[in-house]
């Protein structure tokens, strides 16, 4: 589904990603962990097409197409979804209208008919239940005045509605209390299937108690320095990242 080969990316001339290789197949959940500044969020941003990152080397294939040639909206229409670390507040843009517009753009790309406001309401009600959100959220402006937990739940709501093939969760767990974490993880688990895949970027092992990954990768200085199964995450929980830094010539 996703194949990243020798990916190098920089911001303002500073190289952040230093040769990433990663393969994600349908049905898989990959966790990307690593200390602060290791390039986790950059990787998520490059996947979604953030303009401030320039890819200097390497390639990314998504469902057989060159991802790096696509504008962010095309990536979304092809089935990529990024759950933002810091979801944006957009005053004046109605949540319901926004999400229905997005859904219809994606459906049009897939050759499907648009959904009416009424049909949309039916779809969204089911998804709202999944993330334990009230219908009145739909009347509000996108993320405006939402608490941290509400914003993250709204990301999962959007993901559930747009039904991506590959979802990248960028530190969706950061700053969540245990209830919100449980809801967010529950949403992800409900959507897991043999057809889709997830990349879960996180700083903390805690989320992986709820979303059990098939693979765990440790990112350090812009490279994947260690890969393993869920036990690797537990090891990181017990021993921290220092041993990774030492093994890779960094300062502990």
């Amino acid at each position: 589904m996703l194949s990243i080969k020798n990916l190098h990316a920089s911001v303002d001339g500073h190289e952040i990603l230093n040769g990433i290789d990663l393969d994600v197949k349908p049905g898989e959940v990959h966790a990307i962990m690593g200390p602060n500044g290791s390039g986790k969020s950059t990787l998520a941003g490059v996947l979604a097409g953030r303009a401030e990152y320039s890819v200097t080397e390497g390639r990314i294939d998504f469902l057989g197409k060159n991802l790096l040639e696509m504008a962010p909206e095309m990536r979304a229409r092809e089935g990529l979804f990024l759950a933002f670390q810091y979801p944006v507040e957009i005053p004046g843009v109605n949540s319901s209208y926004f999400l229905r517009t997005a859904l219809n753009e994606i459906r049009a790309h897939r050759g499907l008919d648009k959904v009416s406001a009424l049909e949309f309401l039916k779809i969204i009600r089911e998804k709202l239940e999944l993330v334990e959100m009230d219908e009145k959220f739909l009347k509000r402006s996108v993320n405006e005045g939402f608490s941290g937990g509400e914003k993250k739940r709204n990301e999962i709501l959007q993901m559930a509605t747009l039904e991506p093939k590959l979802a990248v969760l960028d530190e969706t767990d950061s700053g969540l209390d245990i209830d919100a974490l449980r809801i967010v993880a529950g949403g992800v688990n409900a959507l897991r299937s043999q057809e889709n895949a997830f990349i879960v970027v996180t700083h903390y092992q805690r989320l992986l108690n709820y979303i059990v990954p098939d693979f765990v990768h440790v990112l350090y200085q812009g490279k994947i320095v260690k890969s393993g199964d869920k036990d690797l995450a537990l090891h990181l929980e017990d021993f921290g990242y220092d041993w990774i830094k030492e093994q890779n010539g960094g300062q502990a």
């Binding site: 962010p72 909206e73 979304a76 933002f84 944006v88 957009i90 926004f98 997005a102 753009e105 994606i106």
Partner: peptide, 11 residues
């Protein structure tokens, strides 16, 4: 904000 909207498939 533009990037956020685009990342959801909106041109």
């Amino acid at each position: 904000s533009i990037f956020y909207l685009c990342s959801r498939g909106i041109g």
